[in-house]
Design a protein around this nucleic acid. Sequence first.
DNA 1: AAAAATATGACAACCGGTTGACATATTCTG
DNA 2: CAGAATATGTCAACCGGTTGTCATATTTTT
Lengths: 325, 325
Amino acid sequence: MRAKIDDVAKLAGVSKTTVSRVMNKRGYLSDKTIKKVHDAMEELNYRPNVVARQLFKQETKLVGLIFPTVDNPFFGQLIASMEKILFKNGFKTLIGNSMNDSEKEKKYLRDLMAHQVDGLIVGAHNQGISEYDNANLPIVSIDRIVNDDIPVISSDNYQGGILATKLLIDNNCKVIIHTNGPQELKTPAQNRRLAYEKTMRENGLKPIVYTLDFNIGYDQKDRFFRNIFKEHPNVDGMFLSNDMDAAQVRDIASELGYQIPNDLKIVGYDGADTTRILLPDLTTIVQPIDKMAEEAVKMLIERMIDNGAGRDKVIPVKLHRGKTV
Amino acid sequence: MRAKIDDVAKLAGVSKTTVSRVMNKRGYLSDKTIKKVHDAMEELNYRPNVVARQLFKQETKLVGLIFPTVDNPFFGQLIASMEKILFKNGFKTLIGNSMNDSEKEKKYLRDLMAHQVDGLIVGAHNQGISEYDNANLPIVSIDRIVNDDIPVISSDNYQGGILATKLLIDNNCKVIIHTNGPQELKTPAQNRRLAYEKTMRENGLKPIVYTLDFNIGYDQKDRFFRNIFKEHPNVDGMFLSNDMDAAQVRDIASELGYQIPNDLKIVGYDGADTTRILLPDLTTIVQPIDKMAEEAVKMLIERMIDNGAGRDKVIPVKLHRGKTV
DNA sequence: AAAAATATGACAACCGGTTGACATATTCTG
DNA sequence: CAGAATATGTCAACCGGTTGTCATATTTTT
């Protein structure tokens, strides 16, 4: 049986209250008593039952993260980074991989609330989950517009869209295709499309946008991309919505006989550390993932304290010059 | 203020006990009462406070995962997979990214225990953390030998070592270098080295093993690998400890003028889905990551129930023929 | 009609800490 | 030396559910 506060009190020869005081550093305490208590805790290998404390304090020091999946270079780095910062601030992290399944996301939301998490950071790609509206909980979102009350942290997608499109145009591409997520999905990533379309038009070029779900599998994407090449065999520039897609497109294009970057130039998006290591040659727009994680946690903690508004935050991106342009 | 059980009881016109009975499906209950209670819960948007329940039941339905980091194709997939299965079994997942820092791992272990997790699955790469010995908690380990009481799930590293080495030898490599983690670190991955050494000797070749820490950074690894090429410019085969390293080595080798696979053949390890998508050409030994996740969770749940021994489990690997051999 | 099964309520103890109120004793300060 | 500051104790309420005991009332079964 695990030791409890009474056991410690008994062994240290003090009262339960004093032990609690030592743990919480409240009231007057002599060094001698503090030492006695610590020794007793040590000897019994005592760990306060956080659950009991949670119940009384009405705070759990738990933060829930709801994202599509941790198994992805972008989200993996984002989540690892947030977890690290949360840990530093005394929070533990509960994860929920919602896998772009609204039902699962709702269930996670309910469950995490039942677990009395002190706050949530969300970035799942689902729409219209009304439960967020009356969650009555500090929430911060990353790259996803949930509702008016929830501040959104994102990188400068518009700037990223301009950077990528300009780069392709400056390198003499004429038929440039852009892929993005569904427009119904309210996400700042749509700003890339807007920037792309505007930049194309300003340069007298016709925007060609293909929409693809984030959550379709590898084989389905394969068919999707091959279809693009069938419909636009003369494509000479592509601006993809993420690096994994860019890698896949590059492989398909090579297989179809396109020389990269001579016949076809490719720009990816995200620039997570892992992809940068695995594919250093891929030209991509680098999102400041760690910085986004930092801002998200910072904003969440602010909201926990003063319940303040905390408005949307946009962080600049930068270009990584690889060899695919 | 969030609704509590008394509010539901009042609204439904029943007693607190009855509400609890409805929630836990205990005792005799009429359909009418059940409906009344459910309606009241609905109306108040009632969510039972899991913390209170946890305190009484002495069970949290939380499982802690302690791994180096979620930001890695192998661990990312492993963790995502485990989380999914745990969720299906009614557990929530608390993550700890120990980053190969013993102190951090100890802190996580303590904290997670304080949080009263019902079980732990660990795979962090640290040695001699004695706290595990008297954790008095169901624990399962992945790819890491912690102590005699904790069962280890791993893929067949010995078989993987043979597969990789044989492949290189069969393709006429003579100077084959293998990299692995520190030998002090008790992990089944050392079996790859044993298999490599044995296979090399059986074929009259001299084993050359380089040891590198998992946790050193990109630049440090760069120097490390370049040094290998300096010391063994005639190397014609390499069997790396993971795919990220293999990718890095491939880039360095290309830069140094080696033609791959003509001058130099490379075999990686892990074969996570993400790396397979990003680097389909990389020849690698594929670990059955999802299967390992499944077995780990299964064994943990078994241990929770009957506290049974549950012995080590080894799962076969397979070869992915890319184009680097 | 008696016995058994079903349905519900009231009450209190319990899980393991935290905290406020109050009491008492020792030590320090002016 | 009185009063303040320091140090510790006892006690009980509290956080929000769960559960066992006992009581009572209504149905169903034999």
